[in-house]
Computed example of a mutant assay.
Amino acid sequence: MNYQELADKIKVWAKELGFQKVGICDVDLKEHEAELQKWLDSGYHGSMDWMARHGMMRARPDELLPGTIRVISARMDYLPPEAQFASNLSNPNHAYISRYALGRDYHKLVRNQLKKLGQRIEAEVEQLGYRPFVDSAPILERPLAQKAGLGWSGKHSLILDKECGSWFFLGELLVDIPLPVDKPSENQCGACKACMTSCPTAAIVDEGIVDARRCISYLTIEFDGVIPEEFRKAMGNRIYGCDDCQLVCPWNRFADVTQQEDFYRRSCFQTPELVELFHWDETTFLKNMEGSPIRRIGHQQWLRNLSIALGNAPFSQQIIESLKSRKGLSELLDEHIDWAIEQQLAQVHEKNGIKIKHERLIRIVQKGLPRDA
């Protein structure tokens, strides 16, 4: 078997299946084990107990599939046309949803294409042990991607490629054949720290290290409890995920728009009014989010996230009435609704206070008195 020729074929087949880039690496991730353990010991994984449950298996792909000696790492772009980054974030009455979640859930699609790739390889070599993964097992996908030449780990911890930035999904195909490996990518972030300084909640605590407990993506997606008050104002109108660290990255100027229509913005998110989304009952939520990654957070968490966004929106009596209409569904939701109503009313009090101070200053000036009178 000419494995170099096979590797070349695999990369052609991968592109035919919708992947933009594929790389191959071995399974040795020992250099990342101490770093992973330190991250876990620091509690940066928050309530994601599954991150710690499997120990160092995440750095040992051959324990997931005995006999594995190579990992085929694949990239699929997801940046939708008309991403509307700035206009969406700057409109406080609209919901901001991470760009990866505007269309269909990527897990099944990417995994199916990886499975097809495995089947094509199997047909070529006649006997193959393989298994595809897309966030479906404890595996360090980003170090594998860097080792396979798909990009380097940026200071925000995401994989960056100089030709396309970071707007892409990753998937892995574990195989038991000795394919030639690709050259690892070299870090090209340099002195840039734009992602670190732009994080709304200062979740990037060091270069390449994210404290999930402070991350808006974690808080709105993975965390199902009471969101700490210290982060609520910073969340703004972000109701599902956060793209800020990617938005400011200079390398993302080179990102291509996805050709995969499944990742295009679905119609219900064309003009995502906060109040309208908040009025979805559970049946409507489940129907509209069919096939979406958002569906898995459930209706209560959806309303929780929207409550915070409504609290941060400009004052509106309609918002207050909408918030009150959801009271009593659960203690967790009530906690966030009460906070949101307080934020709305605080805007009225602040506005009235400024008005009173302004009127008092006018009277003082008209009377010719000192301004500190």
Rank of each mutant, 00 (worst) to 15 (best):
V226P: 06
C268A: 14
W302Q: 00
L158K: 00
S292A: 07
A309D: 08
S322G: 14
E321I: 13
K233L: 13
K21L: 09
Y240W: 08
H45R: 01
H94G: 05
V248R: 05
Y264I: 06
C189L: 00
A202H: 07
A95E: 01
G311L: 02
I227E: 02
H349G: 06
L160C: 11
C242R: 08
W251V: 12
E163C: 10
S153K: 01
V71Q: 01
D281R: 04
S198Y: 00
R253N: 14
F278Y: 09
F254Y: 14
D176N: 15
A83M: 09
N93G: 13
A340P: 02
H349Q: 08
N93H: 10
S217I: 12
D206N: 10
H299T: 05
R75G: 03
L40T: 07
R253D: 14
R75I: 14
A202Y: 00
N312D: 03
R60S: 13
Y78H: 02
A313M: 06
I159N: 06
E350I: 10
A148Y: 10
F285A: 11
H349R: 06
R326P: 04
D135E: 10
H54K: 10
E290R: 06
S307A: 15
P293M: 14
L40I: 15
N237R: 04
E331P: 02
V22R: 00
H107I: 12
E276Q: 14
A203N: 14
C192M: 06
W50T: 06
D41H: 03
D281W: 11
D182R: 04
D256C: 15
S307P: 02
E63P: 04
E124W: 09
N352L: 15
A194Y: 02
D334Y: 07
R131Y: 08
G129Q: 12
Y130A: 11
R238F: 05
A313W: 01
K183G: 02
N112P: 01
K357G: 01
I308F: 14
D49L: 15
E230H: 07
